[in-house]
Design a protein around this nucleic acid. Structure first.
Lengths: 333, 333
DNA sequence: CTGAAAGCGCTTACAG
DNA sequence: CTGAAAGCGCTTACAG
């Protein structure tokens, strides 16, 4: 059934040149006379010829494919991230082999996929990577970079928001606004993101003689909602809640409202990510903006440089971001 | 710098067999003795050998790659869809070459990408496809399927929710609840999705002697918010609003609330998609659930069958879904 | 059950 | 500037 697709040989025949010449026409920087080039291109267009990327990848040992692995989550932040990675990579001539991981950890199956297709690099977002998997990739000379996640145990590049510093600043901000009794709702606790945000928050508060309430969440709305209800049932309830991400903060916001309390008068709320929804009139959430574009660029550039240079010393790169003040916080008098 | 990765030849040498035999060991269904197989597999494991998918794809004329194109939108529905496609395809042994389209229409660049990598099929979601592009793909024997979109002009499979019938049922439901003056906020008007939902809604109402207010939206929260404010400024304001998707309905919901009106007492609201957010306590949106899993399965199966059978007559397949009744509608007394 | 050989569609020294 | 030839890593008749 399959009609064989046209190949360089066929074009060569019709254009009365050798197949090598056809190949050169499609290789930027090759030596071909203007005249032959035109002729070949014309025939190619007529036939609908296009060089086969697989064959090219095979011979050049360069596939122009980057593997992108992402956990399956509801956080729209990562949807945005995915889109920007795809565009950024395309602009640099790379294609995206996409993989969803169902478990926390990237599975052997996904890695096999990347290996078999000879991806030139792997970007991992919001998923955990065992060091075994990383070394497997490294043994095959495939650089790996973690986006918004890192691990001290794993020798691997990473780009993240400086979650620790950001959380400190959020704590300082709330403190300066006059809040007295703060709370933090965690994300999934095995993530560096959640850990760093918690540490930064607590460390600052400790410095001013405060200790926040900590409730467990998992980055989802539902868990945050429940965590908030638990908090509100305590003897002393918090007057400010910092959620490990925006979705968490929105869950807290709704729980507070559901209890008939007012935001920010009774309780202030701060999120993290600055996803689009936070600016909706019904939320107007104060949050921390991650400089997504910058992070994406940095990630891609680091990965591509790593590809070229071979094994450079892995490093964690941090970017800052800024507080976006909206209506869920205010200066207490 | 690049260390050459191990190939079948190397394994063959160490296992003292021919390269053909190594290949057979990695080809399910090939004739190899248990003993040789074990020996080869052991050497392969030691060396970390894995068949090169590019070379295999080249010789077998089968890449196991499917192209997935998606518009860059904020609708979380499509995030979910992407995840499920990726998983569904992986379960069937296919890999996903992912592409974001920035414009409404799929660009030549994306198609070229698919063509060069010899994808075995293309799934297009929430993006428009010109017939030129489709025929280009078809000329190269690459089947195409549209997900939740179709076009009469384009000879191409599609799988959608039966938007027309669903919208009719929504209209019937609102009518039965006693609403008198209904409104529809459109999505992007060049999409079949929005058009069909509008037609179904209007057709039913016309049948019972009503004509809904139509306001223009584009599937975003912001436009829906504005559209709703415009509606509320009218002399007679609607008592029920149907949004072209959930995000639209949420925009309407917030606008109504912002005006101090009560939902559903003053105005009822219905969305479409049943994205996760609609069940949040702060929304509790009545909406239409698209049977996503079923749609994904159907799409993948249709595409893969099409691959095998060659060009069958393109058909549009429709699935139903159901109304999810929550708190933004109620029976009027 | 196994090996030698041809060939998938390309790139790239090598010669001219 | 161009062509003939080797080779990327595989699969698969063909012969034994």
């Amino acid at each position: 059934m399959k009609k064989k697709s046209v190949n360089a040989m066929e074009v060569a025949r019709l254009a009365k040149v050798s197949q090598s010449t056809v190949s050169r026409v499609f290789t930027p920087g090759s030596n071909v006379s203007e005249k032959t080039k035109r002729k070949v291109l014309e025939v190619a267009r007529e036939l609908g010829y296009r060089p086969n990327a697989l064959a090219r990848g095979l011979i050049m040992n360069k596939t122009n494919i980057v593997g992108l692995a992402m956990r399956d989550i509801e956080n729209p932040f990562y949807h945005e991230v995915l889109g920007k990675f795809t565009k950024g990579l395309r602009d640099r001539g790379y294609h995206v082999l996409f993989v969803y991981t169902e478990n926390d950890e990237i599975q052997q199956e996904e890695i096999t996929q990347f290996l078999e297709y000879s991806v030139e690099g792997v970007i991992v977002t919001d998923a955990y990577l065992s060091s075994k998997v990383v070394s497997q990739l490294h043994e095959n000379n495939i650089p790996v970079i973690l986006f918004n996640r890192y691990s001290k145990d794993i020798p691997c590049y990473s780009v993240s928001c400086d979650n620790y510093a950001a959380a400190q600043q959020i704590a300082r901000y709330l403190h300066e606004q006059g809040y007295q009794n703060m709370a933090f709702i965690t994300g999934r606790e095995n993530t560096s993101t959640s850990q760093d945000r918690q540490r930064g928050f607590c460390d600052f508060l400790q410095g001013v003689g405060m200790a926040p309430i900590i409730e467990k969440g998992d980055f989802t709305y539902e868990k945050a909602y429940e965590a908030t209800l638990r908090m509100l049932a305590r003897e002393v309830r918090p007057d400010a809640i910092f959620g490990a991400n925006d979705i968490t903060a929105l869950g807290a916001l709704d729980a507070v409202k559901a209890k008939g309390l007012s935001v920010p008068d009774d309780i202030a709320i701060v999120g993290f990510d600055n996803i689009k929804m936070t600016s909706w009139p019904s939320h107007e959430l104060t949050t921390w903006e991650q400089p997504v574009d910058e992070m994406i660029e940095l990630t891609i550039d680091t990965l591509l440089n790593d590809m070229k240079m071979g094994s450079v010393e892995p490093a964690s790169k941090l970017v800052s971001g800024q507080l976006i003040e909206r209506r869920t916080t205010k200066k207490k008098i």
